[in-house]
């Protein structure tokens, strides 16, 4: 019994952290699934979300979750602008060009934030930062619980959007076959812009839910989140939204369990090792279908 309680505690933490990872990964995998582009700036948009919460808190004293009201639409607009201004222009170039362009955007955002906010870590103090909710012997952090709830809501919303609306049908059609979608009258250029907008706002939402527990620092954190998003999507299967949720939860569990039962210093490495193992053994991801082999 005495060993079971910490295990349950770890599993619940892992599940909740995994929820946030899933939220980060879903945006990346949605963009990849529809546009075929790996968005290297994804993590930087997460950091942008964190800084937007910091900014609104500093100026208006808002709770991070209230700043979502602004951050989500701003994210959509920023995403559409980036897609129209840069990615749409190189749609016919090899897919690598789009990847490099997003890498450039990542450097611009990270270093732009560094110039604007300086290098010191920033955070938002919330009154519930250290409160916990006891469920039986397990204590669940309110911050994590809120983040997990936000993830569930956002992913449910995304699911409804993709499966219950006309625009969702158009997005799925574009993902499946761009030319076919174009032939039945879908404006796939518009769909690409919208999808990138959704991807950016998902990343920013994830950033806002993370700010009560993590410090925002420019440049390097963006790369870390991008890497986490990659790991999540590859664990689940690239381009598959349902799988990204599984991948996120799995990454959360691997990290938390690895850190508490193996060596805590390698916390970030366990996810990467799992990622390489997946590439070696099952590159289509745990829940994915086939990947082309040479």
């Amino acid at each position: 019994m005495s060993e079971l309680v910490p295990l349950l505690q770890n599993i619940s933490n892992g599940l909740l952290i995994g929820g946030v990872y899933a939220l980060i990964g879903v945006g990346l995998t949605l963009v990849f699934g529809v546009m075929g582009t790996i968005n290297f700036a994804h993590g930087d948009f997460v950091v942008l979300g964190m800084y937007s919460a910091v900014l609104f808190n500093a100026v208006f004293g808002w709770d991070p979750y209230i700043s979502l009201l602004i951050a989500v639409p701003v994210g959509v607009l920023v995403g559409i602008a980036v897609e129209r201004g840069i990615l749409a222009r190189i749609a016919d170039a090899p897919p690598e060009s789009a990847m490099l362009a997003t890498l450039g955007i990542s450097l611009i955002i990270g270093n732009g934030l560094l110039l604007t906010f300086g290098g010191e870590p920033k955070s938002v103090q919330v009154s519930y930062a250290s409160s916990t909710l006891p469920i039986g012997p397990v204590n669940i952090s309110i911050v994590l619980l809120l983040a997990g709830l936000a993830t569930v809501l956002v992913i449910l919303g995304l699911y409804m959007l993709l499966n219950r609306t006309e625009i969702g049908r158009a997005i799925r059609g574009t993902a499946e076959n761009r030319l076919g979608a174009e032939l039945v009258g879908i404006n796939t250029k518009r769909i690409h812009s919208i999808v990138f907008g959704i991807g950016v706002s998902l990343a920013m939402t994830a950033g806002v839910t993370l700010i009560p527990m993590l410090f925002a620092t420019p440049s390097a954190t963006g790369a870390i989140f991008t890497l986490k998003a990659f790991v999540v999507t590859v664990l689940g299967g690239l381009g598959n939204i349902g799988a990204a949720i599984g991948g996120g939860v799995l990454l959360g569990l691997v990290e938390v369990l690895g850190a508490s039962y193996l060596d805590a210093a390698y916390r970030d490495a366990y996810g990467l090792i799992a990622f390489l193992l997946i590439l070696l053994l099952r590159p289509e991801g745990l829940f994915g279908s086939t990947v082309k082999r040479v």
């Binding site: 790996i38 897919p95 990847m99 890497l227 990659f230 790991v231 590859v234 690239l238 210093a265 390698y266 970030d268 490495a269 990467l272 090792i273 990622f275 390489l276 590439l279 070696l280 590159p283 990947v291 082309k292 082999r293 040479v294």
Partner: peptide
């Protein structure tokens, strides 16, 4: 491990390997 796969897998793995070496 990675050259047999098409798509962005090689690029993604390069970041992971370098990060593991750093850790």
């Amino acid at each position: 491990i990675t050259f047999g796969l098409r798509g962005p897998y090689f690029t993604l793995s390069t970041i992971a390997v370098a990060e593991i070496l750093r850790m």
